[in-house]
Design a protein around this nucleic acid. Structure first.
Lengths: 244, 244
DNA sequence: CGAATGATTGACGAATATCAAGCTGCGTGG
DNA sequence: CCACGCAGCTTGATATTCGTCAATCATTCG
């Protein structure tokens, strides 16, 4: 299989003792609370891993010995029923944490959507760092709280929203996320296919496709090339997302 | 309005410095990690509150100045859409924590289902305790991690399960919870009405009712008085819950 | 260029929602 | 103590949304 990773955004010079010091997502992951010496200690435990698209990264139920920070690319985390029905519970982007802290087994499976780069470390070593550096745990609790809040928005979406409301909510959340990273809120990129969107929103690919068509026909969004969408009417999509 | 709370399970004697020392849910809430002096300090910050059924306890979006531990009764936490559609994101029982740590605003509304008793304290004071007692934060992170895991099960349920699968999953989770507290796994009590179950499972009261009837007719469950259900065939309900 | 994979569209069907009518049980008040 | 009324539950008839099945189209990649 042929695949190509983007080159690292930054090179780290010889004068810097640890690769972590030059990490492109450093300020987005828990490393942001670490001092230089702490970071150096952490660096001993971490391994950088690259994977092509569509690879299984971890399996629900397996012992959660290894945890990751996503440093490049996009992946999905999901749960499955015995007959194959799949629910994607999240898309992870650079800076996101993979594998739930404080759990003996993975609560979900994970698979790369694009080529990805990960920063891997042992669960046990993270636990040790927790003991030494309370700030780490504080950061982790902040992160977990935010995930809980987002998770509840998703429960509302899956339990009570229509197909149009779901898709508009999804596009908005992508837009919001992108604009937090400094991108334009109106032009969004969807690295995942229709099936992944469907499995995230509790719908089918056909319904996603039809709903996209509907939104295009009513001039709320426009296609701007493969996987790229322009939100033409931001207020309309905000209203459509909450059914008002 | 007339209502009646059960009497407190324990009285605390004069020789015990703090009411927390005799708290009936002490070993289920974060107080379990506190030493006696720490507990005494905590006790200064807490107020016991009683509320009748069907009272609003907190509103989504409000500043989260006050947090609670549930000490008696059952309540629901939920989110709403502008047109009134409601998604219940959880039922809280004695020992559960109400209000998300590390958030400026409540992420959900809360309303009592039965008469309830709560242990109330200021968010700011909990934050102070976090700083003094790192174990508290560890406990809270453990709890948040568990909630995240349960939340993902619920995403799978809402996104991908049928009505029968949803109701059986719900009954099973109640059963599991009850048996952890020492009750029989086969006899479960549902303090909430059909509408609450519907709003929790992303269905309507009518569908809940019909699905209950179906399960009764097929001898998977039996009614044993108002709000009481006997699981007659545990294995059947386990299979029905995951569609296999 | 052709095969494969993913996206779109159409026709139809199934699951669940909606609307409507009773039913049940319980608290209240005579 | 019984009858009434109300709220919640159940059941039936019908409507709607979304899923399923199938065909076509588009895009990529060898």
């Amino acid at each position: 299989m042929h695949y190509q990773l983007k080159p690292p955004v930054k090179k780290w010079s010889k004068t810097i003792a640890s690769p972590c010091a030059a990490c492109v997502v450093r300020e987005k992951v828990f490393c942001t609370v670490l001092s230089d010496p702490e970071l150096q200690e952490m660096a001993q435990f971490t391994v950088n891993v690259s994977m092509p698209a569509k690879q299984t990264i971890l399996n629900e139920g397996d012992t959660s010995a290894l945890l990751y920070n996503v440093t490049d690319g996009v992946l999905k985390i999901f749960k499955q029923l015995p007959d194959g029905r799949q629910q994607i519970t999240g898309f992870l982007y650079p800076g996101d944490f993979l594998g739930i802290a404080k759990s003996k087994h993975y609560a979900y499976s994970a698979e790369s959507i694009t080529d990805v780069r990960l920063c891997r470390f042992k669960n046990a070593e993270l636990e040790n760092m927790f003991k030494k550096i309370p700030k780490l745990e504080t950061w982790m609790l902040d992160t977990a709280s935010n995930e809980l809040i987002q998770s509840q928005d998703q429960l509302l979406l899956l339990g009570r929203k229509t197909a149009v409301e779901r898709l508009c909510s999804f596009l908005l959340s992508i837009s919001t996320r992108a604009s937090l990273l400094g991108a334009k809120a109106n032009n969004i990129h969807l690295p995942m296919g229709r099936e992944s969107i469907a499995d995230y929103l509790g719908l089918t690919t056909e319904t996603i496709s039809r709903t996209f068509s509907k939104l295009k026909k009513s001039n709320v969004i426009k296609s701007t090339g493969k996987g790229n969408i322009e939100i033409a009417n931001m207020q309309a999509i905000r209203n459509l997302a909450i059914g008002s």
